[in-house]
Design a binder for these strands. Structure first.
Lengths: 207, 207
DNA sequence: TGTACATCAGTGAACGCGCGTTCACTGATGTAC
DNA sequence: TGTACATCAGTGAACGCGCGTTCACTGATGTAC
């Protein structure tokens, strides 16, 4: 290679990711507004000053975590809402998908739930921005459905927000549920029936 | 008075309330897990050590704030849900009530929204306990309604949680909305239609 | 390919500062007689 | 009512500690020729 092997850049990315991972782990038991820069670097094993090579502040790191936690979720949500088959089956798949996502990325989910209304403004705004995008995408998918006949844009967006909020409520229920399969079942049935009730409301909205 | 005038006790209560008030104000811009004991006493104008005469820690103070923010809300919720008249009118009254509550106690509402999933376990548990009580009370009121014919206890509780969560979502929407009356109107209409859709789902649940 | 210079991720010492907690105290309020 | 003693909310000094940020640095990686 005569050009740019990028060994240096690759190492930098590795350190950056280690900082993000360590921060996320530390945030399981505290809020971002109390997370210390030195805590994070100590957990990674680098000097405190190394932090500044990657982030201006812990708030800045928080914004990066929002992107990591929610950025990759858009295609998943889109396809979940859009699969146009029987409503009951779609609900079951959506709830299962949320359950699996929470089981696989519990720290990311906790971070979003915690910082959505947390004490760090730029992070709150980043989360709000992502959730607004989710709602718009859900709305776009809902509009394609035959049920959307006669719905105003405003009403579609209203319903989309209802679904997005319900998704977050369900995710945080799974998060708080103990590991017992029985408890997870209880949450699954609760979330399923809540979505079912909303779907029923949707079917009878324009009567 | 030969018995116990309680001048000393009254003064103690006054200081305690001043600590709670100061903490609530400081929590508008940070989370409880980063609130310092010295910040609070400085804001009140007492020595840091005076804090320990009233609370073991800031977490302990947080639990007291949960009681202050939600403890007095039970009768209000109960009567709002129970007034058994036209559904549309009830929805309008509920949304108006939430709007007025947020306008009058914005700091309390923000505190609950923020710490519900915040970094301080005892406070999360206190909030969860209060919200569980709310859901049970709403369920009890729903059960009295004629619409509850044929509903299982589980389904009633499911619906009650839906209402309680929706209440919190609406409150935090009002909180984030700028002061402009136009924006408040937008939130009012959004929340009203979401509650309407849930009510429609409720009416067609057992078909 | 080899050499001389530039870049820059990570270092380590140093700083001033505010933190939570301890302790013995003060003096107004409360109680017993 | 008056006096002597007990209680206890709030004080102020002192402590050790970890914080965020600055700065000049090192040495491996990258670039130019």
């Amino acid at each position: 290679m005569s050009h740019t092997p990028g060994v240096r850049q690759a190492q930098k990315q590795k350190t950056r990711q280690a900082l993000l991972d360590a921060a996320l782990a530390l945030l399981e038991e505290q809020s971002l507004s109390s997370l210390g820069l030195r805590e994070v670097t100590r957990a990674v094993g680098v000097a405190p000053t190394a932090f500044y090579r990657h982030f201006r502040s812990t708030a800045d790191l928080g914004v990066a975590l929002v992107e990591e936690a929610l950025g990759s979720l858009h295609p998943m949500i889109r396809t979940t809402v859009s699969t146009a088959d029987d409503s009951e089956e779609r609900i079951a798949r959506a709830v299962g998908l949320i359950a699996r996502h929470v089981a696989e990325y519990p720290a990311h989910v906790r971070f979003i739930a915690r910082e959505r209304h947390g004490g760090v403004q730029p992070v709150r705004e980043a989360i709000r921005g992502q959730l607004t995008r989710f709602a718009q995408e859900v709305k776009a998918e809902l509009a394609k459905d035959a049920l959307a006949e006669g719905w105003s844009d405003d009403d579609l967006l209203m319903l989309a927000h209802l679904y997005v909020d319900q998704m977050l409520i369900t995710a945080s229920l799974f998060l708080e549920a103990p590991d017992s399969p029985g408890e997870r079942d209880r949450v699954t049935r609760l979330a399923t029936r809540q979505l079912r009730l909303i779907s029923i409301g949707r079917r009878h909205w324009r009567e």
